[in-house]
Design a protein around this nucleic acid. Sequence first.
RNA 1: GCGGACGUGGUGGAACCGGUAGACACACAGGACUUAAAAUCCUGAGAUGGCAACAUCGUGCGGGUUCGAGUCCCGCCGUCCGCACCA
Length: 868
Amino acid sequence: MTLERYNAPEREAHWQQVWADRETFKTREDASKPKYYVLEMFPYPSGRIHMGHVRNYTMGDVVARYRRAKGSNVLHPMGWDAFGMPAENAAMQNKTHPAEWTYANIDTMRRQLKTMGLSIDWSREFATCHVDYYRHQQKLFVDMLAKGLAYRKSSKVNWDPVDQTVLANEQVIDGRGWRSGALVEQKELTQWFFKITQYSDDLLEALATLDKWPEKVRLMQTNWIGRSEGMQIRWALKDAPKGHTELEIFTTRPDTLFGASFMAIAPDHPLAKAASTSNPKLAAFCDDCRRMGTSVADLESAEKQGFDTGIRAVHPLDPTWTVPVYVANFVLMEYGTGAIFGCPSGDQRDLEFARKYGLPVIPVVMPKDGNAETFAIDDEAYVDDGVMINSRFLNGMDTVAAFKDVQRRLETATLGNGPVGTLKVQFRLRDWGISRQRYWGCPIPVIHCKSCGVVPVPDKDLPVVLPDDATFDVPGNPLDRHPTWKHVACPKCGAEAERETDTMDTFVDSSWYFVRFTAPAAATPVDATAAKYWLPVDQYIGGIEHAILHLLYSRFFCRAMSATGHLALKEPFGALFTQGMVNHETYRAKDGQWVTPAEVRIDSDASGRRAVLIATGEPVEIGSVEKMSKSRRNTVDPDDIISQYGADCARWFMLSDSPPERDVEWTEAGVEGARRFIQRIWRAVDEAVAKGAAKGTPMPTGFGAAGEALRRAGHKTLEAFSRNVENLRFNVAVAQLYELTSTLTAAMGQSEDGLPWAIREAAELLIQMLGPMMPHLAEECWARLGYNTLLADQPWPEPDKALLVDDTITIAVQVNGKRRGELTVRREATSSEVEAAVMQLDGVLRALDGKSPKKIIVVPQRIVNVVA
RNA sequence: GCGGACGUGGUGGAACCGGUAGACACACAGGACUUAAAAUCCUGAGAUGGCAACAUCGUGCGGGUUCGAGUCCCGCCGUCCGCACCA
C-alpha cells in the first residue's frame, strides 16, 4: 500500500486557515433558525493552556459543532477572565506591568487555543481587564448602587501588619501572611457589598427550575444558601448595662424552650461590648475570641469557651425563671441575631458547653417509644423529633405540635414594644463583599466627598480608568498610593474629594461576561435585542470548583441586572455540565525529585510496567495518579501533544474512555490509541473511495445481506450517536464510532451487488459523525470522498427509520433466571409462538430435565424466562 | 459532625424503564506479513473445572423484594467530594 500517513499537524493548519478565511464560525443573527448558545467557562490568562482547558473546550466544541449541523444558529464565544492577583504578583516579582503580563499571556493562550480547531467566533473575543469591558461593569455598579443593591458597611479583613496589606483568605497560611510570614490580624475596614441576600429566597426556590443542572450543584447551592425556619424570641434582661433591657435570639427549636439553661452571645454582640466596658476580664476574653477567628485551621478542634457576664435573662414563658448570659466563642455574630439560648439536652454544642460550666441539663424531648421516667442525657444530646417531657403544658405533645403551641403563646405575649416571639426565616448566605485593596481590578466608580459623602461617578464621567503608571515595587494598594489618580473634584459640590481606591472582586467580572458576549461591541452594557435572542446560555460547561460562588453570583447578577433594567432574565444558564479533571501518573527519581512525564519512558510486558529516565536509563518510581499540577510535575503540555500528534488526537483522547463528568487519566498509551484510530480512519476512507460507489450514485433498488447489514449498522449508529452527543455522553458516542469503523472495514472485505453503495453511505455517515469530534480529519476525509464543500457546513444526516428496527431479533432464553440459550424470532412473533419455539431448545430441555414448566414469562422482544 | 456521590475483568469504562453483565478502548498473549523491526491485519481472554460440548461461581459485604437484581429496598464496609460551631 502506498497510501501516505495522515499528516495531522500540516492538514490541521490548512483547515484552520480555510475556516478562518471563510469565516465559517462567525455568528450572525438569524431569526429564521433556532438559537443555541454554548459556553465554556472562560479561562484566566495564567500563561499557557493546560489539559483541563483542552478537555473543557473540546466538549463545548463538540456540542457547538453538532448543534450547528443540526440547524441551530450557534453562539460559541471565547474571552479572558483577565483581572486578578497573579498579574499583580507577577508585576512585583518581574518588574513588569500587570497589563503587559496579562496581554502577553492572552496572546500565547489564544494562539494555543486556535491550534485546537475550535468552532469559536473569535470576532467576539474580549478581556475583562480592557476598559471597553469594565466601563460597562462600572455602569452596572452605579445602577446597582442607586437601587440599593450595592452598599457599604464595616467588615473584617485579614491584615498583614508587615506588608501593610489586605490578604485574601487563600493568602493566609496557618494564620500567617503568605509573603511576610507575619501573624495575620483582623482589621475592620469599610467595604463594598452586593446585596445578594435580598434574593436568598428566590435564588433558593429557582433552583427547582434548573432541571438541567447537576443535582449535586443544586444541592451545594441549597446548602450554601442555608434556609432555616425558626423564631426570633426576645428575653427580658436583669442586671444588664444601661440601654440593654432585652436580648433577642434566633432558634429553630422553640419547642425546647423549657430545656433552656443559659444564654450565649457572640463576642462582637453589642451587649458583650457594653458589658465589657465595666469588666476588663470580659473584655480580655472577647479579645481572645476574636483572635481565635483568624486561624481557621484549628477552629474544628477549638474547645467551647464561655464567660459569665453576670447578666440574667428572664424566661419568656415563666417570669420567675432566670438563666445566666454568657459570652461564648462558638456563637457567630453574622448569623441570626448573634445570640442563642442554650438547650443542652437538645444540642450537642450546648451540651458540651453546659458540662464544662456545670449548667443544668434538662431532657425535654425523648424518642416516641421512650420512657419519661428513665430517659436521660449522658454525653450525647437528643436532637431528633419526639415527645415532649419536663415541659409543663407541652408534655406529651410531639415536637411539631409543641413548636406551634409555643409560637401561639409567644406571638400573643408582649414585651416592651411588641410580641415576644415572631416566626422568622434565616439564611446562611451572607452579602457578597466585593472590595479588594488591589490595583488589577475594575475600579469601583465612586468618589468620597467630605461634605457630600459617597457620590457615584456620573455616567458622563465613566469610565474610571486604571492609571497606567502605577508602581508595584512595594506591597499595599498601588491605587491608594498613586500620587494623583485618586484626587478629584466632587461631582456634586466641586470641592476636593477622593476616588474610591478599592477595586472589584474578579468574580464580578465573570458574573455577566456571558451577557456581554451576545453584543460585545454594544455602547451600553447590554444590547436588549441581542440578549433577548441569545440568552439564556443553552449549555454551560466548566469545572465543579465553580459550583457555588461563580454560578451563584451569576444568578444574582441576572436578577440585579434585571432590577436595574439592563436585562429581563432570571436564570443565566439553562443547562449546566460540570466536567471532571485531567489526572496523570506521578514519577519520582531516585533522589526523590518529581520527574515530568516527558522525561520518562514506560516499558511494559506481561509482568507489569516499569518507568525509566529517557536521558540516563535510570529507573523511576511510578507513583499515584493525581490531578495534573506544577508541584508534582505531572503535567503534559497541550502544545507538545498538538504539534506532535495533532489537535484531533488530543480531542479524541479527551472524549474517549472516561465519562465527561468524571476524572480522566491522561496516558501515553491512550494517546497512541487515538493516533492509531486516526490513521485507521484515514486508511478506511481511502479504501472506501476505492471500493465504494462513486459520489452521487443513485441508490440501488436492493441490497444483499452484507449491504443491508452495513446500512443498518450505519443508521443505527447515527441514531445512537446523536442521542449520546445530545446527552453529553461522549465516551459512549466514541465507542459507537469505533464499532462502526470495524463494521465498515469488515464489509469492505466482501463483495456483493449493491455493497459499494452501502460502503460509500457508511463511510460518509462515519465521517459526518466524526466531524464534531475530530473536525480536521473529518474535513480531510470529506474532501477525499470527493466533496468540495466544507463538512462544517453540512447539515446533520437523519437516520432512515426503516433501518433502525430489525425484522428478526435474537432474545435470551432463561430457565429459572439462568441463561440457557437464545432464540431468533420474527419481531412480531406472538407469545405462544415464542413459547413453542423455546420448548424446542436443547439448552432449555436439558435444564428442565424432563420436568414441565410451571409457567413461561415472555417479555416481547426482550427475554423469555421458563419457570420450572 | 452534617450533607452527597460512587464501588463492575489486569486497567478506563458499557449495560435504555428491573430483562443475554463486561460494549468500546487500553494493556497482555498467540498468529500473519517482514531478512528483521516498526507499522498494519487477524485471533484469544471474567474466575474455576473440562480436550470439548458444557457446568459452577461472578458487579464491595450481608439480607430482602421479584419469574428475573449491577440496576429497587434494608443494614454494613470502603473510597471520593462539598459544608463545617449556621443555633
